[in-house]
Amino acid sequence: MLKYSTMDTPVGPFTLVVSAAGAVRAAGFTTDVPELLSLVHPMLLEPARAVDATEADEPVRAYLDGDLTAIDAVPVEQHTAGAFMRHAWRVMRSIKPGAPVTYTAFAELSGRPAAVRAAAAACARNPVALFTPCHRVLRTDGSLGGYRWGLEVKEWLLKHESGD
């Protein structure tokens, strides 16, 4: 059974959906649990129940308090049929706080320099916001681009991580 919790953050509520083993399967700046569950691959989907806190809550709080690497060790479970997307999500987890990359650079890091659109799709389809930091990927011109949870949230995260 999946469990979920919601915490307050400086940019609004953040909800985590976590497996019984403690791996994050979905996360986002929302209270809409059905929306988050819709992001979970059907192979990983189970009934979910509310809890006071999950194993991932404490690392998120530490991240928000300034320990920007606190979320790095939190396990995630993401699944997709595409090998490139699975690989891109693993690569995305290696992008360091305060060092965002462009979609072009992300495609290069992922081993397919010409696959800029596929790299952008990996960001757009990422079900575990914050832990797989798609917010650290920017347009080629350095502008924010899109973010499922709103550009205000993406901008806040990037500023938080840069120390501004």
Rank of each mutant, 00 (worst) to 15 (best):
K3H: 15
T6E: 00
D8Q: 10
D8F: 12
T9K: 09
V11W: 11
S19G: 02
A21K: 06
V24L: 10
A26Q: 06
G28H: 01
E35Y: 13
L36H: 03
L36Y: 02
L37P: 04
S38G: 15
L39P: 04
V40G: 03
V40S: 04
H41T: 00
P42W: 03
P42L: 01
P42Q: 02
M43C: 12
L44E: 01
P47C: 14
R49I: 08
A50W: 14
A50F: 12
A50M: 14
V51K: 10
D52F: 10
D52G: 15
R61V: 05
A62R: 07
A62D: 08
Y63W: 04
Y63D: 02
G66P: 05
I71Y: 10
A73Q: 13
A73I: 15
V74E: 02
V74M: 05
P75G: 02
Q78V: 10
Q78C: 13
T80F: 14
A81V: 14
A81S: 06
A83E: 11
R86Q: 13
H87W: 13
A88M: 07
W89H: 01
W89V: 09
V91I: 06
M92K: 09
R93E: 12
I95N: 05
K96E: 04
P97C: 01
G98Q: 12
G98I: 13
A99F: 15
A99W: 15
P100A: 03
T102Q: 12
Y103D: 15
A105T: 15
A105V: 15
F106H: 03
G111C: 11
G111Y: 05
R112L: 05
P113S: 03
A114I: 02
A115K: 07
A120V: 09
C123F: 05
A124P: 14
P127R: 13
A129V: 07
L130W: 00
T132C: 02
V137E: 08
V137Y: 02
T140I: 08
D141W: 14
D141A: 11
G142A: 02
G142T: 09
S143K: 09
G145H: 11
G145C: 05
G146W: 00
G146T: 12
G146L: 12
G146H: 06
R148M: 11
W149P: 08
E152R: 14
E152N: 13
W156G: 08
W156L: 06
L157C: 08
L157H: 01
L158K: 01
H160F: 08
H160K: 06
S162N: 09
S162Y: 06
D164R: 00
